[in-house]
Design a protein around this nucleic acid. Sequence first.
DNA 1: GTTAGCACTCATATTAATCGAGTGCTAACC
DNA 2: GGTTAGCACTCGATTAATATGAGTGCTAAC
Lengths: 341, 341
Amino acid sequence: MELNERKMTILKAIVRNYLETGEPVGSRTISKFTDLNLSSATIRNEMADLEELGYIIQPHTSAGRIPSDLGYRIYVDAMMVEKTKEVEELKVSLLEKEERLDHLLKQTAKLLATNTNYASMVSAPSLHRNKLKLIQLSRVNDTQLLVVIVVEGNVIKNRLLDITEDINEETVLKLNILLNTHLNGLSIEEINLGMITNLKKQAGIHSDIVAEIIDEVAKAIHEEEDLEIYTSGANNIFKYPELADNKNASEIISNLEEKKALNELVVKTLSGDSDTGIQVYIGNESPVDTMKDCSIVTATYDLGDGMKGTIGIIGPKRMDYEKVVDNLKGVMKELDSIYKK
Amino acid sequence: MELNERKMTILKAIVRNYLETGEPVGSRTISKFTDLNLSSATIRNEMADLEELGYIIQPHTSAGRIPSDLGYRIYVDAMMVEKTKEVEELKVSLLEKEERLDHLLKQTAKLLATNTNYASMVSAPSLHRNKLKLIQLSRVNDTQLLVVIVVEGNVIKNRLLDITEDINEETVLKLNILLNTHLNGLSIEEINLGMITNLKKQAGIHSDIVAEIIDEVAKAIHEEEDLEIYTSGANNIFKYPELADNKNASEIISNLEEKKALNELVVKTLSGDSDTGIQVYIGNESPVDTMKDCSIVTATYDLGDGMKGTIGIIGPKRMDYEKVVDNLKGVMKELDSIYKK
DNA sequence: GTTAGCACTCATATTAATCGAGTGCTAACC
DNA sequence: GGTTAGCACTCGATTAATATGAGTGCTAAC
């Protein structure tokens, strides 16, 4: 037995219907819903086949059918038609130019949540392959030295170093020039041990401080490895009864708050690649154990210079995949264009 | 009829019991629970009085009594005994030294939530009265100028300015000196229009940029007015059935996520003053409309230099007020000592 | 292959019956 | 006077019994 065209049509109708209503769908409904002109009895036969093939499930004997994870998968992979019309307009108005990346990303998360009515997450771009743009040292007072590190993409990091040895303004200036001459334009990988030794040598009696500064540069860039993640719309999950029970809701909220699990998701999304950049995890496919009742759709955005991040939507398995995908695509595009401005 | 000592004892016993069990408490329970050696019938008479006085409520005819908001209030104001012993030890181990304030505050929120089993919030300190410690200008490239602003308390702000006129390194250095000589050590209020005019004059052809920089200084400090607020333990509310229903939970989660309402709470807490620094809002007393079923306990921490912030706990009305107050006090103390290190 | 028809299933809703914790009140007691 | 034993009463919660109806699977006929 194979999934012929008629079965496909029926499966598609079942999924569509279930996405809308959230109720198990029966044979009579499909009989009317499709233009196949088949009686409910015939549909019933086909549905029995579809169940045997594993695409749909009967919650209990006298109920209609709901899609299985596999059913959703087929739908998403082969039957879904993207809309790509109205969505685009929606966002443009909302994502304002915002010089601070973190504000922009928070806004993005909020926008996604509002537009889709699901929970959303946005990860700050990983700086992994980023180049150092500028190091700036300033003497704050006798005991503190401020190190400002700017990396490509205008991400700025600050470190306040406690200093023991006395360093005057001129020395700070010298060190500043030394470091910038040698390090600017280099990626973290390019700053190797040989270079560090060389720098330390040139710094003479201040080699300790230089070492400390380089350490801070590495830390500042590396620290982003435990990614900043912004979430929004957590309360949206209460709109979907299948997720709103205490156990589920508590776990999802906890995940959104803790962000540990989301981190995994980001890593997985960034490492995996699909041609469209969109990845869909349905139910058990989820990399996050406590979200087996959810579907997660993620996308990778790319601001150039290796600044990649993840945006994602978390909702019930019966989410409006078309809408979600469209929204994610739209936001990706939007982020792109804002950055290029 | 007045609230004599015996009535107080009974009321206290009712509140205590209800805090523990979450169930309406009956006369027989109190008869056994207290050392008054009174029969349940007598207790019943007293309870009828307490109800008439408005301190307790009968959910329905054949149920025991639960404290009213007023009952809780009396309890908190007059009957509560603080423990102050075991709690202190709990925290000390957990709040590690952390050079980044935001990390420390996030950690604090988490700690409070874990210790109390309620939701928690921690606001970043308001910088309102803070003094400028350092301005640092750096030329990033031909079109961008980096402005780093350090304020007392080592809070660091960055701004990236787009520049149109060409500015060389020497000019940047000069402006740097100019600004720092005049502005360092001043609070935002002390930087008045006369001074700004003077600075602009001295900057000559670069007065536009100076104006822009001062603008950024003001903005950087002011922006903190819409406070950064960290929350934790949102999922704890699911532990309390009276808050775990969809409507309540959704609203509370939404509040914790949006943070708008919490902001009000912070403002109110910072403006109000009590001798202990602790403020308790019970049910309807809450400044946040959507949290009428909760109690909120807040405290103000003070890192010196006018850096004040708010920490708070949000939980059911039948929260363990002693424990919460102790925890808040402990954390206040802890923040204090960490900062002084 | 398709369909009408019908017996069957089972979650959900409705109603009724029972239980029991806790009350209020009365009358007796100290 | 305050205190208490005793008892009828209330009412939410639990359980059981009963209906409802959406939807199925199967059979037999078209």
